[in-house]
Design a protein around this nucleic acid. Structure first.
Lengths: 121, 121
DNA sequence: CTGTATCCCTTTTGATACTG
DNA sequence: CAGTATCAAAAGGGATACAG
């Protein structure tokens, strides 16, 4: 039987949750152009806290989308990079990013209309 | 200046949040093959509560991705359908769904490896 | 620099009961 | 049928302190 995202207990649903995750998506996109250090990710992705960035990276590493490489240096340095599996997601996520920026104004216009309509009763 | 999803306050980030939303994605995909009633959506999308389904539909309606049509009948009947804007998302979301089902086994394998590694210390 | 640990507040989500 | 209201539980998230 095929995995089915509509099924409550299907693993594919969890996979979708990971992909759709607010920070996961941004982390993967940030790693699109190559290896990045922890601090570079933190700087690029505005608004992510240390806690959530670490948590997100662990999740992506666990799911085999990202590798974590610790360099034995002082001060320590940790590099993150996409795996082959992670790279297969790039086009899809880049598409979503593109959609979001391209259709932003349409969405905002729709919101204004909706809110005006609701206020009016 | 271009909308930028890495920017904390950019509207495109909110758009991405809506798209990436756990239930929004499934609702849009369910509406791919045409108009659906509230109860049909609820039945198809396992595990969604009445509250979350309603909330998700309102959000999608507000953002101009979905239309809501109330038929004055007894019992009441409400139809939901994608807008033109909503349909522009279909290919992207279908791609994600496909990715999730296609790579499920790889992700699960990666998880097993990771968990075994962590347990071992 | 790259984390981990903890506290604590906020938001999200789910279960349940109820209504036009 | 298609919701709304309410309450409790869980997850998300920020701030701070501390460690290798």
């Amino acid at each position: 039987m095929e995995p089915n995202v509509y099924n409550r207990n299907c693993g594919s649903r969890q996979v979708l949750d990971r992909i759709g995750d607010r920070w996961s998506m941004l982390v993967v996109l940030t790693l699109a152009d190559g290896t990045k250090r922890y601090s570079e990710l933190a700087a690029r992705i505005e608004g992510v806290s240390q806690k959530m960035l670490t948590q997100t990276l662990r999740g992506l590493e666990r799911d085999g989308l990202v590798t974590r490489t610790v360099h034995a240096s002082v001060p320590p340095r940790v590099d993150y990079a996409l795996t082959d599996l992670g790279r297969t997601l790039l086009d899809l996520l880049a598409g979503l990013e593109s959609w979001a920026t391209t259709h932003l104004s349409e969405v905002q216009a729709a919101r204004s209309r909706y809110d005006a309509r609701v206020e009016a009763g």
